[in-house]
Every structure is written in C-alpha cells, then in structure tokens.
Nucleic acid binder design. Structure first.
Length: 152
DNA sequence: GCCAACGTTGGC
DNA sequence: GCCAACGTTGGC
C-alpha cells in the first residue's frame, strides 16, 4: 500500500509551526476538526503518510513545513471535555463523532512556499487548496502535486 | 476589517 | 426535503 499525501491548515495564532517545534518529540494531536469532510480524510490517513503544514490567515499564507502521520485516527478527546472550546454537546462516547491523528514535524522548510507561488504554477491548478472558496482544513494532495510543490 | 463562499441548523 | 438564516473560514 503506497503512501498518501495531505495538506493540513492551521491558523498560526491557534497553533503555529513554532508551537509544533516546541512540543515534546515535535508531535501534536490534530484536535478540533469539526468538519465531516476533513474528519473523513483524517480517518483515511495511514501511519507514514506525509502532510504539508500550512499557515492560513497570514500575509502571505504559506506551506511552512512537512509533517508525518505517527498515529492513525482515534476519537478526539476534546469533544467530550466541557471545558474545551471544541466541546460537542451531542458527542457520544460510545459512538464518537470527531476523530484526530497525531503528526510529527518532519522538516521545516527553509523558505515557506507561499500561496501566490502555488497559484503561479499551472501544474498545481487542480490542487484542492487553490480551488475557489476552498476552506477544507484537511485535504488530499496527489503524488504529482506533492512532488511539484517540493521541487519549487 | 471586509466580505464571498461554504457548512450547518432548524422551521416549515 | 427545502431553503433561509446564521456562524465560520480565510484571502485580500
């Protein structure tokens, strides 16, 4: 079974690559996803899959790092925690609604790859990230797109 | 800060 | 099941 590629968005004021670097073993649980499509993609992720780590809400927004899936999907504990901002009143522990994966920082890019640069590359015009109105926070990236992005 | 695009909710 | 209203995302 071959490796798959993904892109995971984060607002750096919530969780940035700097926060990621400081975490123990440079690992984090991708908590707080509350969108079914994004959740479904996380459930497809396999250990060893790679993901672009993307900062949204920046000037310019950019891919800043590469991360690796180190633990496959399991229930997001924040859905059951009334003190969490991700608490979901309707979440049922015997049939959890929200899932997350653990990812580890693989490498920080020396130079972030900005959204305008990605848009300029015609080979990337079908990337989910670049579609009009695309807000999906966890999305698939094809092998060709992955290679194209990294070769710059 | 603005606002278009999107997803979700809830009344009917 | 439809769809208006609402809340959120995220580029600009």
């Amino acid at each position: 079974m071959s490796k798959k590629y993904w892109l995971m968005k984060t607002d750096p004021s919530t969780f940035s690559v700097e926060d990621f670097k400081k975490n123990p073993r440079q690992t984090t649980s991708w908590e707080g996803v509350r969108n079914y499509q994004a959740r479904n993609f996380m459930r497809e992720m396999k250990k060893g899959d790679l993901a672009f780590f993307y900062h949204s809400q920046e000037d310019p927004s950019s891919i800043v790092a590469v991360a690796r899936v180190v633990k496959e999907a399991y229930p997001d504990p924040t859905q059951f925690d009334p003190k969490s901002k991700y608490f979901d009143v309707d979440a049922n522990p015997t049939n959890p609604r929200w899932f997350l994966v653990d990812i580890q920082l693989e490498k920080v890019l020396k130079t972030p790859i900005t959204l305008p640069e990605l848009r300029k590359n015609s080979k990337l015009k079908n990337m989910v990230l670049l579609q009009k109105g695309s807000r999906l926070s966890v999305q698939p990236v094809t092998e060709q797109e992955w290679a194209t992005v990294l070769e710059g």
